[in-house]
Amino acid sequence: MGMRKKHLQKRHLVELFMKTIMRVSFVIVAGALGLILWTIISRGLPALTWDMVTQVPKGGYYMGKEGGILNAIIGSAYLATGGTILAILLSLPIALYLKAYLGDSKWGGCVRLSLDVLWGIPSVVYGAFGFALMIVFGLRASLLAGIIVLALIELPIMTRAMDEVIRRMPEDLEHAALALGSTKFEVALRVVTRQMLPGIVTAVLLAFGRGIGDAASVLFTAGYTDRISTSLMRPTASLPLAVFFQLGSPYPEVQQRGYAAALILTIIVLAVSLGSRWLSARLNKYTVK
């Protein structure tokens, strides 16, 4: 019988070894994630009262023990939504330009490399850069400045994700539509958009997720306030900073409120990513792979 398992053969050992490594790394990642979630939930949940999500802070500025963090929730929603919309307005043209004019040329490669580098730059650098710009333009810490900096942070992620989507667009598809007598506009509107929409949605929500969780960039640029923001030119509160400030407090009750804020942020990010998965699966039903 030449078909029995030969366990001690080298290639089987290699297989076993690689499998073990993969399992171990999975356990490490899953464990770390579990631990983080456990910390946030176990410490934050007790402080997560109805007041936390429906009221603004009462007394003692944001370090107080009363009231809620509605100001930060709404501020973050404004910041991330505004930043994402601005980033879409910049990313989509760049991604289309990359496809239409630069393609896989040397310049295209340069632009992609720059975007990848920008992606890797820590957000505190964006914050400092934004701050420097604000001084030049005489802008004070405000919702508008925060939105602009978040848009800059989201830009590379969004552009590269869109670029990949657009590059994967099968050329056959456009030709098929043109062969039926479509105009180029009809091809773009009815065929290309349908094919790319799921990927674009994913790109946008990915960037939104990064934007809403970022603390360092809004620290200098958006400031903080106890009030719900009503003006683009005034400072705004944000969830990441609510977490940051409250966790830094020496009082356990305030710290606990910080964990509650982190929990809210996590829930929002989770909801956004589940929503984006659901949406892109729905839109993806008809796309050509």
Binding site: P170, H175, A176, A179, L180, G181, V191, V288
Partner: peptide, 16 residues
């Protein structure tokens, strides 16, 4: 192109 239809080498259904 409306009057002259094309059947391509590989079928390419539209994403719908």
């Amino acid at each position: 192109r409306k009057a002259v239809g094309l059947l391509a080498q590989r079928p390419s259904p539209l994403p719908m």
